[in-house]
């Protein structure tokens, strides 16, 4: 491994990302790359557009311009010709329906065949609708080739290898800690409907292994032995850790943490910083931190990017950023333009 993680190949490249809400520009043409195995941070005062940018990266909201490439694949951009896609779902079925109607009208085929064609039409419609919902990668690629583009959805990003936590904790409050982690493991498990019905040995073994792994993950984030506690009963700091464990369960390559230290006391914050370093060093994860508080990120970040009013105003090592007059101005609220 190289000395400086910033020299690594980029795992995520965002180019010219903008998001506009009506007349309000929340994020304005932001370029942003994350090198592999780096810890980078995005900071900025309240309302700088950090969370909006974050949500764009995660496929929660579509950008109005720009694109996000993750591990060489264009995942997110402004949707293009989406209306045609709906047309494509129904077109084959409509054509087949019309064809069979015409054939029947002309008396070329018998009634039984028409019924069969009608059934095929129905199946075609069901098939294309299912395809559109499951969205396998080849389907999206095929659509892109004919100029239809739809941004990845949050779950697509998880499948691709991006994990996240939320600014205001969003655990499944009524589940236990271990169940939360098991939900996070969803993409890693493959038991299907039939296997669930038959309770095959394979699916049983898979569940057992999943529970063991969930235990390991809980231990990793420091929640050993708390697996059976209800998520809502955990102390605040533990809930934040549990969220990280849930995100890790999907085997992400890149972990996006949205203000992970918010509401923590200094001791908890220190522990968290240690955990984040451990995730990078031991698991080889790439980490993007979003923070409101500059102090948290200075210690662990390889690079810090500052957003203000939706625009990138500075980028560099923590040292460089700390001295940047524009950053100081943004944070101290000096008379802005």
């Amino acid at each position: 491994m190289s000395e400086n993680p910033l020299d690594n190949e980029p795992i995520l490249v965002a180019e010219g990302v903008s998001r506009r809400f009506g007349g309000l520009v929340a994020v304005n043409t932001v370029d942003f790359t994350i090198p592999e195995r780096a810890i980078v941070s995005l900071i900025g005062p309240n309302g700088a557009g950090k969370t909006t940018f974050f949500n764009v990266l995660l496929g929660v909201i579509d950008p109005t311009a720009g694109s996000v490439v993750f591990r060489g694949r264009r995942m997110i951009a402004r949707p293009e010709r989406v209306g045609f896609e709906s047309l494509l779902w129904v077109l084959p079925a409509v054509l087949l329906g019309l064809l069979s109607g015409l054939l029947a009208e002309a008396g070329i085929v018998s009634g039984r065949l028409v019924a069969l064609l009608g059934f095929l039409t129905l199946m075609l419609l069901v098939g294309s609708l299912l395809l559109a919902i499951i969205r396998p990668v080849w389907y999206s690629t095929a659509l892109e080739r004919i100029g239809i583009f739809r941004s990845a959805r949050p779950n697509d990003m998880v499948t691709a290898g991006v994990g996240r936590t939320f600014q205001n904790i969003r655990l499944f409050q009524n589940m236990t800690a271990i169940e939360n982690v098991l939900v996070g493991m969803h993409t890693q498990l493959h038991g299907n409907l039939l296997e669930a019905f038959l309770q095959t040995p394979r699916v049983k073994a898979e569940e057992k292994a999943a529970e063991r792994r969930a235990d390991d993950l809980l231990t990793l984030v420091g929640l050993h032995g708390k697996g059976n506690e209800g998520a809502r009963n955990l102390p605040y700091g533990d809930q934040r850790r549990l969220e990280i464990a849930r995100a890790l369960a999907a085997n992400p390559k890149l972990l996006l943490l949205d203000e992970p230290a918010a509401g923590m006391n200094p001791k908890e914050t220190l522990d968290l910083v240690a955990l984040i370093s451990k995730l990078r060093d031991d698991l080889g994860l790439t980490i993007l931190l979003i923070e409101h508080d500059m102090k948290v990120v200075m210690g662990i970040s390889d690079r810090v990017t500052v957003l203000d009013h939706g625009e990138k105003i500075a980028e560099g090592t923590p040292e460089q950023v700390r001295k940047d007059p524009r950053v100081i101005e943004a944070y101290l609220g000096a008379p802005a333009a």
Binding site: R20, G23, L24, A26, G47, A48, G310
Partner: peptide, 10 residues
Amino acid sequence: MTALPATSEA
């Protein structure tokens, strides 16, 4: 976040 007139990249 700022309110800009609807121009630029659109």
